[in-house]
């Protein structure tokens, strides 16, 4: 009979974890590699050339990275605000399958299908702003995920605790910041991270709607992957993962700071 401490099972577990961690190690390895000539299992030469060239020489690209991180953070904030409104409505009213359909529509329709139609739509609008169109489409595609997380969060009797807060005199923004948001934090954080990652990973939406003006990290990375310049692609990949990881750490610290303040009170 299968037992948890079985070495065979532990091996499977290790393999599974390794398959998740392995890509990160590969990225790390490839970022420092120079030439990967045929029979050698590991790359032959190592150097900091790729990293140096991105951080110091291609300054414009580096600032593009920073901008795309900032852009995705803005997208995530907007997504969370919109998702919060929808989740609040859903928690107070009867379950509506039509609304669920509307929320999950971007889940089901591929982004390339939407992108080409959206190109036509945004060209016909009086104000043609590439940033706005990309921003709106990123929010659109992150909304289903964020709404799912926040609806789940809203199920934990938020309304009752909010009413308690009102009984004690809190109202408006004070209520929002001191009661609702701390209660929702365990759900706001995954929603934020998910929207951030989704926005950063979007390729076809940004390519088609940005019209070349908007360069996100994905847009810079993909040509390098295609061309076979593995070291540069890996450095950008690492930048991508590093920025997500740092953001995640920031959120965790915020969450812990809030929890500590709660305990003190």
């Amino acid at each position: 009979m299968l037992v948890k401490k079985d070495p065979a099972y532990q091996l499977i577990r290790m393999l599974f974890l390794f398959s998740i961690v392995f890509p990160f190690l590969v990225l790390l390895l490839l970022s420092f590699s120079e030439r990967y000539t045929w029979p050698g299992i590991l790359p032959g030469n190592y150097s900091l050339r790729a990293i140096r060239s991105i951080l110091f020489q291609r300054k414009a690209l580096f600032f593009n990275c920073l901008f795309s991180i900032f852009f995705s953070v803005m997208v995530s904030l907007c997504t969370i605000m919109a998702a919060y409104c929808t989740a609040k409505w859903q928690s107070e009213h009867k379950e509506s399958s039509l609304l669920s359909f509307c929320i999950f529509l971007p889940f089901m329709i591929p982004s390339s299908v939407f992108a080409m139609g959206a190109q036509i739509l945004f060209l016909r609008l009086p104000f043609k702003n590439a940033y706005l169109s990309v921003f709106l489409s990123h929010v659109l595609y992150s909304l289903p995920y964020a709404t799912t997380y926040l609806t789940e969060g809203m199920r934990n009797n938020i309304k009752r605790l909010e009413e308690q807060g009102r009984v004690f005199g809190a109202s408006g923004f004070y209520l929002l910041f001191k009661v609702t948001i701390p209660l929702l934090f365990p759900y706001l954080i995954p929603a934020f991270m998910m929207s951030f990652i989704l926005s950063m990973s979007q390729y076809i939406l940004t390519v088609l709607l940005g019209g070349g003006k908007l360069k996100t990290l994905s847009l810079i990375m993909v040509p390098f992957i295609q061309s076979g310049e593995r070291n540069l692609a890996s450095v950008y990949g690492l930048l991508f993962l590093l920025s997500s990881f740092l953001l995640f750490l920031l959120m965790e610290m915020l969450l812990r700071g809030l929890k500590r303040r709660e305990k003190v009170c």
């Binding site: 409104c85 409505w89 939407f114 139609g117």
Partner: peptide, 22 residues
């Protein structure tokens, strides 16, 4: 309370419009 539904309605409408135009 229907105001809370406006963001989602706006985005869904945008989405459907883009699909329809395409």
């Amino acid at each position: 309370s229907f105001l809370y539904l406006l963001p989602q309605l706006f985005f869904t409408w945008l989405f459907l419009l883009a699909l329809f135009l395409g």
